[in-house]
């Protein structure tokens, strides 16, 4: 692990923490969403609105560029980044501790079979694993090995409406995000139960993390406790704060 990764490990509790505080302060003061606080040109609501419209346009461009057959590169296990960086919008000591015994994955929305899933039940489904590169919106990347259920298998099993537009996720740490259906059905999109061959550790998202090597890190929710299929845009924690929604790689 080089120094850069070490620094990330220690200080990264979300994309540019000091600025995020400024953003939060700004939003409290103005009661609005000054995403671009700190620069006088971009504080203009009209500029902000235009930039967000381009971001929506970029969502469509990315959906168009997305090739459901195109696989992300995979790597030998010797290339796994050790230790793998922890990254969340909070520090390591705030990681939620979920009781695996009592945990049930809630399934809702446009889904035929809405019965909740225990971890034991999820472990009985066919498992697969892959070593892929996680690319963070901040620019850094790290290689990890995730294992679990192919998400397309899971969606089929629960009778999800595969023609719907979005799959949304709610997490035990208050995080939430959503993805497009083509990415949900991508062969490398996994509902993961393990990291590096071990039960998913809390810091990497116990009990469940959705892993997509075709999307940036913030699109890969950890501590997933509920998912729903919908045609109503669900947004996301960082997406609602200005990050691009598609967030594809």
């Amino acid at each position: 692990m080089n120094d850069r990764h070490k620094r990330m490990w220690q200080m990264d509790i979300g994309p540019e923490q000091p600025d995020r505080r400024r953003f939060l302060r700004g939003s409290l003061a103005l009661g609005a969403l000054p995403l671009l606080g700190g620069c006088s040109i971009s504080d203009e609501p009209i500029v902000e609105k235009a930039l967000l419209q381009v971001s929506r346009f970029n969502d469509r461009v990315q959906a168009w560029l997305f090739d459901p057959e195109q696989l992300a590169p995979t790597y030998p296990e010797s290339m796994i980044t050790r230790p793998f960086p922890f990254n969340a919008y909070y520090s390591l000591d705030k990681v939620p501790q979920v009781d695996g015994e009592r945990f049930r994955l809630q399934v809702g929305g446009r889904v035929a079979d809405q019965r909740p899933w225990s971890l034991a039940e999820l472990r009985t489904l066919p498992q697969t694993d892959q070593v892929t590169r996680l690319i963070c919106v901040e620019g850094w990347s790290a290689i990890g090995k995730w294992g679990g259920v192919r998400f397309s298998d899971f969606l089929e099993r629960i009778g999800a409406d595969l023609e719907a537009q979005y799959v949304g996720f709610r997490c035990a740490d208050g995080y939430y995000t959503s993805i497009d259906m083509p990415t949900a059905l991508h062969p490398q999109t996994l509902l993961t139960l393990t990291f590096d061959g071990q039960v998913l550790p809390a810091r990497y998202g116990f009990p469940l993390k959705l892993r997509m090597p075709t999307k940036l890190g913030y699109k890969n929710p950890k501590h997933v406790e509920a998912l729903f299929v919908t045609n109503t845009y669900p947004g996301g924690y960082w997406e609602d704060r200005g990050y691009n929604w598609f967030g594809g790689s």
């Binding site: 540019e16 400024r22 995403l35 671009l36 700190g38 971009s42 919106v137």
Partner: peptide
């Protein structure tokens, strides 16, 4: 102003 704004 911050990362998201810069990316926009």
């Amino acid at each position: 102003g911050w990362l998201a704004g810069a990316i926009l």
